[in-house]
Write a protein that binds this DNA or RNA. Structure first.
Lengths: 403, 403
DNA sequence: TACTCTTTCTTCACGACTTAACAAAGGAGT
DNA sequence: ACTCCTTTGTTAAGTCGTGAAGAAAGAGTA
């Protein structure tokens, strides 16, 4: 109901830094417009930041009809966030600059179901962080398959990892003495997509990931929609075929049980297209080589995904749909059937909805998790509660230690 | 990105009034807690409002361990909003108190496709408003089937009404000199449901309406999700059956083409259950009387709706689903099949999701439109832009004229 | 009765933005 | 060259909110 102006001090200060980091140098007037804030405030904020030594005047200028702009730039760009992707059998670590660019990345084997999983994870994180310059790390973002309740604490439920009510955020925070944000991996990816990726200029974005499972991240009016307990985005279990194949979740005909990579591999094996020990890579190779049956499998998946996604687009009316995930590696084989099915199932007014396919890179998931940290300082109310404040504090502190 | 504190002055003042109007008298401390604002601020606001003569101290008190609370109440409750439902062949008008209760209501025939439609509408509204006490009307809310772009102006696109880019908000505003908010009817209903109805205590609500069409209103984190151009909520055109019946929208197998009232009537006619001039009322009467075929038709619809809705719930994870619309009049015949289908298609973790069925009243739609006006003053940034400010101004003015 | 405790409400100093007005610094037309 | 216009940046005053400290008013208890 009522609104309030809380700790906004550093929120806007951080927003200035992030904008400069993400979009390059800008004038004060540009900042005011971009952040939707009065020029007067920018004057004050930048004065502080210049004083703190975080910003510098670039003396650049180019007049276009009026007083030339004095550009401002970040003094030091080595402000980073660490992102972690947790999968059942491995974890990936990346360190990402404030501009969203990956600085270094590492993958490690990992056994999520082991009773030692969390303490093992802590060791791995500690090792990764100390390999870099610990002082410049703003915080740690963790992305994992599952739902996260009470974001401030970071309580994880994940069937894939076999975790039940694990307060991962709290545990990592204690062990590492750094701000930690835990989030569903698709939501993390969505944040990254909106901060640095294809969804950059939009406030309403639908991010869909295709891999072993199918997931969706929904951004409405610039904020991630998390639902009741972080459980939103389960596009994979939208029912598609009444008599469809059995899904992990126990129901029949879920989207994910038809177009997930495991399902495709299953289909291919059942017609002896690939052997019992071959997987999706071999299937893709066959399709690449022109095998009709393999192509048919991908086309069928494309068709089914297109129709199901049309339902989501009709329901949510996003400005752009971004497709990502391991599954898009074979996208050329999905594309035609997908496009046809999607367009023909969309309501006429939405038929032109843009769909962008993100080229898949292996550390994308982890990058998304890192983006979470870089985005945290802005949700004033703080979905992540305290963590946003902690990140802001570290940011300001990193300036002071430098001067 | 950055946050700002705009005209919040009156926003919070109005929030106090609305809370008192909707929930009855309350103490200052209660208000502070309910509106999530500091007690200090409530002191200031209520001092103003008391001075303006809008509030009175009720001298009530009941101590429970501490200083007794001085209750505050609205001096005058005859602050109202007018709600209008526009359908292709008729319009409904209601005047609603600040507590959400309907004071008076009127239905009038109307021809939406006529070239005189808008001017006719203006006459009807003017007549309805002048029958009451014009001074107490805060503003006018209009709900209609279609999408509304640029809420501030209120540009309407509606295939059902045959309207294309009609700046209805602007037109009404000029003619009536009152704040006007135009919105999709389901979104309006959703706002009402969240302000006064079943969704009152939740921030994530999915409102589904069943009638001739099927619609959805989505509230996430307390705000209506409107999508790219107000086009969100098209649950009716989620594709359900690949080879399903042809839908108005031109596609095949849309949910609405299977479970909409028109579709049910069609089904019944095709098996000669009802005559060519009979409709859904007769079909329902048959089912009520125990006719198996009629019951089967409703049950089939319930099943299909349940499955489709499960997809939306999996995707959005609302705290509560509210069912409404003309269609729920026959809900007893939908219920069993619906529940079974819904629960069995939900992901295990969401299987307990509460679903509330709202008893249908004929002026509900118009009531929703009126709720829009009562809610407008709170969206600080103002989805409805200027209109929120205008409503606040009228509210304050109505106080001054009284004193 | 006197004390402590709880809850309610108020006062005060201060911080974060905003608007409004103005200063600075250049282009464009005459 | 001079005036007008546009765009950028600053200063100053005012508004809306907060937190902290304390006053007010009763209940509980020895």
């Amino acid at each position: 109901m009522a609104t309030s102006s809380r700790n906004q001090a550093d929120v806007n200060r951080t927003a200035v830094l992030a904008h400069l980091g993400g979009h390059g140098p800008a004038s004060r007037a540009e900042l005011a417009r971009a952040l939707d804030v009065s020029p007067a405030l920018i004057t004050q904020l930048t004065r502080d930041l210049l004083g703190d030594g975080l910003l510098e005047e670039l003396e650049e200028s180019s007049s276009n009809g009026g007083r030339p702009a004095r550009m401002l730039g970040l003094v030091s760009r080595d402000i980073t966030a660490v992102g972690i992707k947790i999968a059942p059998d491995h974890t990936a670590f990346v360190e990402v600059g404030i501009d969203g660019v990956v600085r270094r990345s590492v993958t490690r084997p990992f056994d999520a179901v082991s009773p030692l999983a969390v303490s093992h994870l802590i060791d791995l994180v500690r090792a990764f962080v100390s390999e870099g310059d610990e002082g410049r790390v703003l915080g740690i973002g963790v992305g994992l398959p599952g739902t996260v309740a009470q974001q401030g604490i970071g309580v994880v439920d994940s069937t894939q990892l076999g975790w039940n009510q694990v307060p991962l955020g709290e545990l990592l925070r204690r062990a590492l003495d750094l701000p930690v944000v835990v989030e569903n991996n698709v939501n993390a990816l969505s944040v990254a997509e909106q901060l640095f990726g294809q969804g950059r200029d939009y406030g309403n974005v639908l991010v869909v990931t295709v891999g072993n499972g199918v997931g969706a991240g929904l951004i409405a009016d610039g904020a991630v929609v998390r639902g009741r307990a972080g459980g939103a985005g389960d596009l994979g279990h939208v029912p598609v075929r009444e008599d469809g194949p059995l899904c992990q979740c126990g129901n029949r005909g879920c989207l994910e049980a038809i177009v997930g990579q495991a399902a495709l591999v299953n289909d291919a094996r059942s017609i002896r297209l690939i052997g019992a020990d071959e997987g999706v890579d071999e299937l893709r190779a066959l399709a690449d080589a022109g095998n009709e049956e393999a192509r048919e499998i991908f086309a069928h998946a494309g068709h089914t995904l297109g129709r199901a996604l049309a339902g989501a687009v009709n329901l949510l009316d996003p400005e752009i749909v971004v497709l990502s995930g391991e599954g898009v590696e074979a996208w050329s084989h999905w594309a035609t059937a997908f496009e046809t099915a999607l367009r023909s199932a969309l309501v006429p007014g939405k038929r032109g909805a843009p769909v962008a396919v993100e080229r898949w890179q292996d550390d994308r998931w982890a990058q998304g998790a890192a983006a979470l940290v870089l985005a945290t300082p802005f949700d004033a109310e703080g979905v992540a509660g305290d963590q946003g404040r902690l990140v802001r504090e570290r940011l300001v502190a990193s300036a002071e230690s430098r001067s």
